[in-house]
Amino acid sequence: MAVMVGIGRGARSGILVKDATALELLAKVDTLLIDKTGTLTEGKPELREIIWDSSANDTALRRLILSSVYGAENESIHPLAGAIASGIRKQDIEPARPESYEYIPGFGIKCRSNGMNMEIGPASLSEKSEDMGFRNKIDDLLGLGAGVVVAVCNCKPVVAFAVEDEIRVDAVLAVKELMSAGINVELLTGDRQATARHIAGKAGITAVTAETLPSMKQQRVEELQKEGHVVAMAGDGINDSQALAAADVSVAMGGGSDIAIDVAKITLVGGRLASLPEAVRLAKSTLRIIRENLFWAFIYNIIGIPLAAGALYKTGFLLSPMFASAAMALSSLCVVANSLRLNRVKLK
């Protein structure tokens, strides 16, 4: 009964609980792994800068490369892809449809476009460049918290895109409240270490695991579970789905990818990170009510069953069946009334 009321209370606050056991487990969580893009940040990235490698010094070649990147990113559902495509569109460049296309979760895109073999992926691709100015600029941008996507053309890094995604306005307070509730918060992201550290620092998170592939995120969840932790994972993308499935409690942000929402046991419908500590408070209140209901039901039956069985018959006291039925109904009424107290719990 308490779980049912708790689920209803959560729904009214934008916390959609799809698995009743998740609400009970959330009250016991001691470690939260949280994704960066779209979870800790707004998920509305914008292209801030395009950096060219010295090997791509021809204007016509640059437009051809941007056209290929534009067309490839149009096929992608990664949060940064839309920002890059939108930024290129503003330069009056038409997208080239890829002749072949492969999306690799945790890495990026491999495709053939405009007769060129293209790789579009993480900043680490810039390590193949011989232009130290190009590589140093990328390192500087990563240190400032920008997300960097590098395009490789015919095995040579040619261009990098610096994308910025602002941290959620409620992130700092949400992290602080979670830590105050005794939950260790760790940033788990595929971004470079410098970018991850910068964003984590803004949010007040000290534990960071960066440069992870989807399978590595799952491994991190399993490592913590083997150490005896009850682990929650919060994410919004395809890259988070393996970790979400492995976690004791999985939380998806509303507006995230369909697969993340489908896998998650709890969805924050409004996409507010502040709803996460609210969900924890609701879970703990629900668990407390469950324990209270069990306690009173246990005490009630310890007293009532012997009386109904005639334990005091020799003293002349006998509990009539009608009175026993009424007492049983009263017991159920007490459980319902106590459970309904969850509707008055303050989550904010």
Rank of each mutant, 00 (worst) to 15 (best):
K217I: 02
E49T: 13
N343W: 15
S331V: 05
S325I: 14
R112K: 14
E73V: 08
I50S: 05
Y101R: 04
Q225E: 09
S100A: 15
V148P: 01
M179P: 00
N117D: 13
I84N: 07
I77F: 09
N154F: 03
M322P: 03
L187W: 00
G108E: 06
G115A: 07
A264V: 02
I34N: 02
S76C: 04
A327R: 10
L330Y: 10
A260M: 04
L142C: 13
E186N: 06
F107C: 07
L25I: 11
I50C: 11
Y300Q: 04
Y103D: 08
P79H: 08
G143F: 01
E46L: 14
G310N: 03
A56G: 08
R291G: 13
I93F: 01
E99D: 13
A308T: 07
Y300N: 06
N117M: 09
A11C: 07
A200M: 08
G145T: 05
V150K: 06
S285R: 04
S325F: 15
V249C: 00
G14P: 11
M116V: 12
K36P: 01
D236H: 01
S126T: 14
Q193S: 15
A123Q: 09
D35E: 13
A232C: 05
I84Q: 05
A60V: 09
T206C: 09
L40N: 02
G115I: 03
P105C: 08
G204Q: 09
A252Y: 02
N293R: 04
A297M: 05
P79N: 12
A283H: 04
I238M: 11
V345E: 10
L16P: 00
I299R: 01
G6Q: 00
A11W: 06
V158Q: 12
A252I: 00
G228T: 06
I84S: 02
A2W: 03
A207W: 13
K156S: 12
G121H: 09
Q225R: 12
D19R: 15
D248W: 10
L23I: 14
A196R: 01
F317L: 15
M233L: 06
A308Q: 08
K346L: 12
V335E: 07
D170S: 05
M4W: 09
E24G: 05
L80F: 13
L173M: 10
P105R: 05
K265I: 04
I120G: 02
E177I: 11
L319A: 07
L142D: 02
Q91M: 13
A56M: 15
K346D: 15
R281P: 10
G182Y: 04
M233N: 03
I88Q: 09
V231C: 05
K137W: 11
E211F: 14
T31S: 13
R192E: 13
G254P: 07
K28T: 13
I290H: 03
Q193F: 15
L144D: 14
A308I: 02
